[in-house]
Design a protein around this nucleic acid. Structure first.
Lengths: 270, 270
DNA sequence: GTAATAGTGTCTCTGAGACATTATCGT
DNA sequence: ACGATAATGTCTCAGAGACACTATTAC
């Protein structure tokens, strides 16, 4: 790749400082241990955020991300950042959307391509670095607004977003931040559109298995669907739907004060 | 937006010339008039291409596109290019994917955000500029390859693309160009992924109405589905599916050598 | 026994696929 | 009358929603 040589002052006028960055939505599901020995662990849908320690937005939370280096593909940059934060290589990673508004970043023009990564939290044995934290996600939504609360058991981040339908033909919305004081940049928008994308994909793909351990019970799997979709599912219906996607093993999970459950795994052959 | 000032040679080393561009897939459906007076016009799924008259890829065809200007949002740039080519303002426009590989463009690093636009060709009264041309799209596909033929009744563009499944959990494929000699850049990839996106959206949204005239018959609508999806649909099934999306008018289309058909319009109230 | 989860049976209703049938025009 | 498209009727089958029911554990 050729470097750019600036020749004279005329060229300078046209030279807008421009950078490409990538921001990554790292989603997972957290277990909250219950005091009642009979109860299953409560699950929470969660996202990994980083605390900023430099200008701009110093002290605010943001999505893990960074600049794409010269000579580096955008997806490679996303992968690099992901490995840097998690120490895991084989993580599901999908490009979401590119934010190209001129004034997103107060320093200069930064075009950011967002990615979504899904991870099974149990694989994160190493403790994550101390400027990173998992936040549980709670969303309430009506016709016109989305309210999101993120909670890491220590700090609560709330923001509110206005939805307006772009056109009737598709279900695309234009999002606008109404309230936000703890998140940097336009990251509330990225979070909301990522959640929306994940919910959709849950319904028509097997994407959920990217955030599951190798072996799991059907109840656990159902719980993951439920916390992400934000609604209860009926057992028989759920089991019918996922029946041909999973495979029984001979193992059982015992120890709860109730009937043991069969461990399943994702069916990779068909 | 602040302009960038280069201070010394050290900075120059880090200054990679980088640009943002946008490429637009403008899809439509063309009518081919039949000689048999009884027959309906045959429809073709089509895409608008531009002939390059400068380096690089001079003489090859490419998607309409261009550089995002300093101080211009990416989506505004896409809209500007679209209006420039079509003279129509209210066109459906949707961001598709951002191509961020380092060596996409031989001149320098160019990150390109692709968009898909859908249009009713009847609205293009003005003749389009003479470096633009509509190409009919024909796709054949098997497990591992996609063959695309584009035809503007004068020139035929063929290319072949290899598909490899990225992971089993979702239906995401990695595309690689196997054969291509008439299209510039990585535009075969953009075309293929755009077609795929449109096919998907046809099935679960009302996106098709963005390429229909205000009034249309159900047979015409069905034909549009058929040419894009590349398969025949059964009449009763089709009519059931779209029944609640359209509204009867009092107008009829007469003149063919057969039973007249009722004109419908997209139902905007519910 | 009790409280919890695990897992299944089955009825109903909806909706898609498939095929057949009737309707209506221009020549 | 003929050849084309327009529009509908209806049978069957698969699948989702809903509710009820049985099974099995730790304490």
């Amino acid at each position: 790749m050729k470097k750019y040589k600036i020749k004279d002052d005329n060229d300078l006028k046209e030279c807008e400082k421009l950078s490409i960055s990538t921001d990554i939505l790292i989603f997972s599901v957290s277990d909250e241990i219950q005091s009642n020995y009979r109860k299953l662990n409560k699950k929470h849908f969660s996202v990994l955020l980083a605390k900023r320690d430099t200008y701009p937005f110093e002290g605010k939370w943001c999505l893990p991300g960074g600049f794409v280096k010269p000579g580096e593909d955008i997806e490679d940059a996303a992968r690099r950042i992901l490995v840097d934060k998690t120490n895991i290589h084989d993580i599901y990673l999908e490009q979401l959307y590119t934010y190209g508004e001129v004034n997103r970043d107060p320093r200069m023009r930064v075009v950011s391509t967002s990615y979504m990564a899904l991870i099974d939290k149990n694989r994160l044995n190493d403790k994550i670095s101390n400027n990173l934290s998992w936040f549980n996600i709670a969303v309430t939504e009506d016709e016109k607004t989305i309210n999101v609360t993120l909670d890491n058991n220590n700090e609560e981040i709330k923001f509110k977003i206005a939805k307006t339908l772009k056109e009737k033909t598709t279900d695309r919305y234009k999002y606008k931040i109404l309230e936000n004081d703890k998140l940097a940049f336009d990251h509330p928008l990225i979070i909301v559109s990522g959640i929306s994308r994940l919910k959709n994909k849950l319904e028509y793909t097997d994407i959920v298995f990217n955030m599951m351990p190798k072996y799991f019970t059907l109840s656990e799997l159902q719980q993951v669907y439920e916390v992400i979709l934000g609604k209860k599912l009926l057992d028989p219906a759920f089991r019918r739907i996922i029946a041909n996607k999973v495979e029984k093993t001979n193992e059982m999970r015992t120890g709860g004060g109730h009937r043991p459950s069969i461990l399943y795994k994702y069916k990779t052959t068909n």
